[in-house]
Design a binder for these strands. Structure first.
Lengths: 345, 345
DNA sequence: TTCAAGTGGGAAAGCGCATTCCCGTTGACA
DNA sequence: TGTCAACGGGAATGCGCTTTCCCACTTGAA
């Protein structure tokens, strides 16, 4: 990657390095117009592209914003990524991407890499966890973040603070009202459903999952309902599918219509997909609700009841965009939890 | 973003800058073990994080790979992004992201920004177009890419070469056999469907769309069928939805069962979504096929017939991963194009 | 014992740019 | 006409690191 340099431009234009620099960047000192013109011409003729690395080094600010996600192909994360990307664009920055498939130790490395590149800020999306196997990784991640912040970096975390992070300076978390919303969902569901509830959750220790479970149970309690049984599985479509398979028999042999709450949309889709070949129909034989309101899934039939989350805004907020409205979800009751007119099967 | 520097580490360890550098990076010259240990300790104590910008400047190679997509939240692109990300990870690089919503002038700017950051290579995903309004943007984009390549950059383009690009050095395009696959799809569909065909395409001039249309028509011709009518609309869900609305009446008033080919999956979903409230059922009243085989859409019902594309591999290939198999799609006939047992309505 | 080759650490020269001083000009005002 | 401020361009320094070149030293053979 060689290219023409500023000094070449300066030489061609017959001016000094300093002048050339002042012309070609938004310096506060504006050289005379004729000189400026000459410099611009020279730059143009040479096809000069400023070396952002060198600029960053000289003014110690890179114009980079790092984004850590579990999996960029997951619609949840790609929606957040879009928000971050937009914010970055507005701030005239570029986004650096890192996928980690959720392991804190990988996330730590990503943060270190961002720090090495002197990213102005870092956004961490994806659920935090307190699982035992993540303990060490979390500690290291927290240490890395602390160091990064102490050195003047800004970090935005989606959902929950990183376990063990102690800095407050430059560290902000975009709170997602998972618990409240899940509670709201439970209450709305309880209004029309009189049977039992069942929760299909992610692994224990995953904050996002745990919050939603807790909120849902609270909502049930508030509605005067007994707590729901909780099944733990993977926090993705495959997990939902598995749970659905395990559940099929039980639903078929029961006379009561079950209302299932899967802690996110893709899990709900997985459950539904597993149930279908078994002849279990939604919402006839059971009803189901998800969480997130993933855009790509909105055309799904039966339309999935869920909780809308402004994922793009969340990304924008985490990226430090000041004029993004605060996070506020909303329960969306759709077909998948409707009580059929012919009532219980 | 201040942090401890290499010279601080060197001073603490009581060695020279050169030695410290040699220890902390994979230099070919390995200092003695005891010294190395001292340096590592010092680095550790100071929480030293090498400044990648400075490193890049010094060795003129940034370890960055730039990715240009239309929209990172679009599942087509996010799947490719995942592939690129993986390749980057293997090569020990990081990916820089830019979303451009498809405008060549934006893409040009993204490329310039990547060039400024001295990215080692650039991947451009997303359909090229020859539409009149993109003419100038395309020319500029091509010029920017040429310059980038001449300066030693590598670029990988998904699908079609950038219009007007003349460099060959360091420039490679990942060919996607859209035409052949669309032709294959047409032939397979023609085997079971005897009615008319209709194509819902993107705007004229969009290579990907045009290729698929052409291929499909060829396939029909090969099967001895008349050419299909082509409706042009937006290359996204909204476009499909619009087309679906416009089509509903016609389908309802016709006795013949239409087979619709939407040039990508999300458009097909849009069509289906528009048709449903009108009482037009797939595959009873019409059949439909898409293209891409988007993962998130696989649980859709009726299961969408489509053409599978190894998007992740495509991303990996574009990012220059040598041991990724070549692109090879496959026709996937599913429920949405099945002929119901009770035949024509 | 001497000299050549080999070893390993340090000094210094950049990489490409921003920025701080410094100095020669110019214009206004007395 | 002389003085001073304001202005505008240039030389030089440094951002943090890699790498070349040099030098002091050790080793082995003559």
């Amino acid at each position: 990657m060689a290219a023409s340099t500023l000094s070449e431009v300066a030489r061609l234009a017959g001016v000094s390095l300093a002048t050339a620099s002042r012309v070609l960047n938004g310096s506060s000192r504006k050289p005379a117009e004729d000189i400026a013109e000459r410099v611009r011409e020279a730059a143009d003729k040479l096809g000069y592209v400023p070396n952002a690395q060198a600029q960053a080094l000289a003014k110690s600010s890179s114009g980079l914003i790092g984004l850590v996600v579990h999996d960029i192909a997951d619609p949840y994360f790609s929606a957040i990524a879009r928000g971050v990307q937009e914010a970055a664009r507005q701030q005239n920055r570029m986004v650096l991407l890192a996928s980690t498939s959720g392991a804190p130790s990988d996330e730590k490395e990503a943060v270190a890499a961002f720090a090495a590149r002197r990213a102005d800020s870092i956004v961490i999306a994806g659920s935090r966890s307190v699982r035992a196997e993540d303990k060490q990784g979390n500690t290291e991640l927290a240490a890395e973040l602390d160091r990064y912040c102490r050195n003047g970096g800004h970090v935005g975390v989606v959902g929950h603070p990183v376990v063990g992070a102690s800095t407050t300076e430059g560290y902000h978390v975009v709170k997602v009202p998972n618990e409240e919303l899940a509670s709201g969902l439970a209450m709305e569901l309880a209004a029309t459903h009189d049977g039992a509830f069942l929760i299909i959750a992610g692994p224990e220790g995953l904050y996002t999952s745990d919050d939603r479970v807790r909120g849902f149970q609270c909502g049930l309690a508030d509605a005067g309902r007994p707590a729901a049984e909780v099944i733990r599985t993977g926090f993705n479509r495959a997990g939902g599918y598995e749970a659905g398979q395990a559940l099929a028999e039980r639903i078929k042999s029961s006379t009561e219509r079950l209302c299932i709450f899967a802690v996110n949309d893709v899990m709900a889709i997985g459950v539904t997909a597993a149930l279908r070949p078994e002849g279990v129909w939604i919402p006839r034989d059971a009803t189901i609700a998800g969480f997130d309101d993933i855009e790509t899934l909105r055309d799904f039939r039966p339309a999935l009841s869920t909780v809308h989350l402004p994922l793009e805004d969340i990304g924008r907020l985490a990226a430090g965009d000041p004029d993004t409205p605060p996070v506020s979800g909303a329960v969306k009751l759709r077909r998948s939890t409707e009580t059929p007119v012919d009532s219980q099967v």
